[in-house]
């Protein structure tokens, strides 16, 4: 611990293990105590309690509920659509971030502000708006219908809703990294004869990649759990376009607390494992780039 109060009566540093580094500022006990109590009360105890209730169900029933075909399919839809949407956003979000950081054009600030719309717009509003557009009688849905395919009430509709929801995560995580990129590296690459595309692929992309992966992970995690913007456009057809959060709500409405708890706990478990995996992937790309 390096923080030593400057100018104050320096207390002799305690030897060995100490929880709090020496300081002259007051209020740590109150602030820390309140933070911890509030965190436990609002977040940790309720979440822990849910895990305990899931454990109460018993191992065999836990797997019987989780591995039921309808539940498995919902998992497949939720995670598959969230991943597809996050990858689509990785491409377009990178383009948007690139354009916002690198180019100056009229309306740039307006666009910059608009990128956060999915953060600010309530999900149920986004849900009914997207459905109005992509339903067979909507602006784009009618076009798709004329071309012979359906968007709303299929997994494609779910992906569209999740692209909407996830976009700002990618743009806002990539933007600061693009801003901080050193212009000299690009100039060096160019002067050594690399084309612009080669410079992008070999020089810029490796530097952006860790942030891009973070953005994808955030968008993915949000997409897996997303409920409001998806349920309207999804149509919620079992084994076709039913997502896990909807299944949890359905079980609750039937007073099947055990079912809802088990599915919810399983979903949190899988999300946690996937985020752990992404974390490793990110460390790997970062260490590769560092070399």
């Amino acid at each position: 611990m390096t923080a030593v109060a400057s100018g104050a009566t320096v207390r002799p540093a305690k030897r060995g293990w100490s929880f709090l580094a020496p300081t002259i500022l007051p209020g740590f006990g109150t602030a820390f105590g309140f933070t911890l109590a509030y965190l436990c009360l609002i977040v940790l105890i309720p979440l822990g309690h849910m895990a305990l209730r899931a454990a109460d169900v018993g191992w065999d029933r836990f797997w019987a509920i989780t591995l039921a075909p309808r539940v498995l399919h919902a998992f497949y839809v939720s995670f598959g659509c969230a991943l597809a949407a996050a990858l689509i956003n990785a491409v377009f979000g990178l383009v948007v971030a690139w354009v916002l950081v690198r180019y100056r054009f009229p309306g740039r600030r307006l666009i910059d502000a608009m990128v956060d719309l999915p953060f600010a717009l309530p999900t149920s509003v986004a849900g009914i708006a997207l459905t109005a557009i992509y339903a067979p009688n909507g602006w784009i849905g009618a076009l798709a219908k004329a071309a012979g395919f359906k968007i709303a009430f299929t997994p494609i509709g779910i992906v569209i809703a999740l692209v909407f929801v996830g976009l700002p995560f990618i743009v806002r995580t990539v933007e600061p990294v693009l801003q901080d990129l050193d212009a000299e590296v690009e100039e060096a690459a160019a002067s050594l004869g690399a084309t612009r595309w080669q410079t992008f692929i070999k020089v810029l992309l490796p530097a952006i990649l860790p942030a891009l992966i973070t953005g994808v992970a955030l968008a993915f995690a949000r997409g897996v759990g997303e409920y409001g913007s998806v349920i309207f456009i999804a149509g919620n057809i079992p084994a076709v376009s039913e997502i896990v959060p909807l299944l949890i709500v359905a079980r609750l409405e039937q007073y099947d607390y055990a079912g809802a708890t088990v599915i919810a706990t399983a979903m949190m478990g899988v999300s946690f494992l996937m985020l752990l995996g992404i974390n490793f992937l990110q460390r790997w790309t970062r260490s590769r780039h560092a070399r």
């Binding site: 309690h49 759990g225 959060p245 949890i248 919810a264 979903m267």
Partner: peptide, 21 residues
């Protein structure tokens, strides 16, 4: 990390935990 936890929990689960309590 614990303070950020609610961001990575599905909204549906955020409601469910209180129903279970």
């Amino acid at each position: 990390a614990l303070i950020d936890l609610p961001f990575s929990v599905s909204p549906v689960i955020s409601g469910l935990v209180y129903v279970l309590l």
